[in-house]
Structures are given as structure tokens and as C-alpha cells.
Amino acid sequence: MDASRFLFVAGSLVAAILFLAILVFFTRQKSKSRGSSLLLVGPPDGGKTAILSTLVYNQTLPTHTSLQTNASVVAVPALKKSLTVVDIPGHPRIRNQVDEHIGDAKAIAFVVDASTVSRNGAVVAEHLHTILNALTSLPPSQALPALLILAHKSDLVKSGTAASATSESLAINRVKTILERELEKRRISQSGGVAVEGLGEEGERTEMGGLECTGEKGVFNFDTWEGGEVVFLGTSVKVGSGEAEKVDEDGLLSLRQWMEENV
């Protein structure tokens, strides 16, 4: 009688401990998996969803403006690992969804349409500014995600005179120059300004920072940006193409290489 009761108590104890152990194991795993995703952000019509489709399905589906966030797992064959790629819509009204995902980001890829950036540079810079601000205002306990800027649709950039430069480097140069110029404009307009207070919350930081640089006179420059290194890559995809064999030839080669090295 006593023995059976003892057995019962012991058994239930073991079961409880096992359950706890499993729970701890899973939560540990979950916390370990933090900081493992690649966020695709950027203005609308930049090509984020197309990149996601190419990475995930090895084929580029036609896309339209996204209404919601996509998150998919991409296998990185070289490292036998997988990476979650999160594609966040670029429409100004819903792009703040990036705040939900930035906590688990290992890297953030800001996708810019290199063929139109000269026309809507100010809008792109505003978006990038929010991302830079979000990055620099992350709590210090968290490792800073790497920032990639993809000069996408580089195949559409026409090289004007210099035949030596590839279209990719041309796209990168163009995107970098325009964004630096526009961000510097934003920085100047903010540094001297008195912003209007937000309604209600008095103590909260109202203006966006994230543009501080260590260089001389604080002029904004990606090379000296305080938030860490910024990597520029030129990419392109072809809608409609998409055979699995051509993986190595596509315009995302540089991105894939970067992923292999840094994930």
C-alpha cells in the first residue's frame, strides 16, 4: 500500500520534472533562435517580395504591393542552416510593422529600387531614417543587427559613359550618393530645429535620431555612421525566370554569398 503510494508520488514528481525540463528546453531554444532573421524592408515597389520569392521558392513570382508581412525559412546549403526571411510591406501606413520584428533580427536589408531612387530620394531617405533610428534606439543589451543596403533592380540601371563599371557597382554608387545627400539634409534640418512636442507624453523622445556620425563636422556618411558597418550590395531578379539550376547565375548571388558568410 505504502509502496504503491510512494511509487505514485515519485512517478508524478518525475513527470512534473520532465514537463518542466521540456518547457525550459523549448523556451531556451526559442530564446536561442532570437536574432536569427533577415528583415527585408524598404519603400514600396522596391522588390522585397520578389527577393523573398527568389530566395524561398527558387523562382521569381510576379508580385504586387504587399498587404501583410511574409516570413519564410530559407535554407543556406553551405552552412546546413536555415534563416528566416521576413518581408515587411513598404507602404508608409503599414511599414511600422518592422518594430515587431526588429528584436529578432540578425540582419536588416534595406531594399532600394536603384532605377528610381534619383526621383524619390527624399521618400526613400525618410524610410531609411526610421530604420536607422530604430536600430540606434535598440537596447544596448541586444546585439546590433547588421545593416545591408541592397541596390536592387541594378539590371535596369544604364551605365552612361564608363563602360568599365558594371551596372551593379554603378547602382551601388548611385544609391549611396543619393541616400547620403538626402540623409544629410534631414540631419541638418533636425539639428538646428525645435520640434513640436507630441501630444500627451511629455518625457518621451520625440525627434528621430540615428544620424550621428563620427566623421568630421558630423556630416552624414555611411562609412562613419555610429550604428556600425553598412554593407552595400547590388542585386537584381528577373520576374518569370526561375529554374532551380540557375541559382548561381542570378542577380542575388552577392546576397547569397553575404548570407553564407554572415549567418
Binding site: 517580395t49 513570382l61 508580385t63 498587404l67 501583410q68 511574409n70 518581408d87
Partner: peptide, 10 residues
């Protein structure tokens, strides 16, 4: 067209 809300056109 038939598409996903995430933007992929099926």
C-alpha cells in the same frame, strides 16, 4: 489575378 495578401501573385 489571384494573389496572396503578402504580395505574391499566384
Amino acid at each position: 489575378s489571384i494573389s496572396h495578401k503578402g504580395g505574391l501573385v499566384l
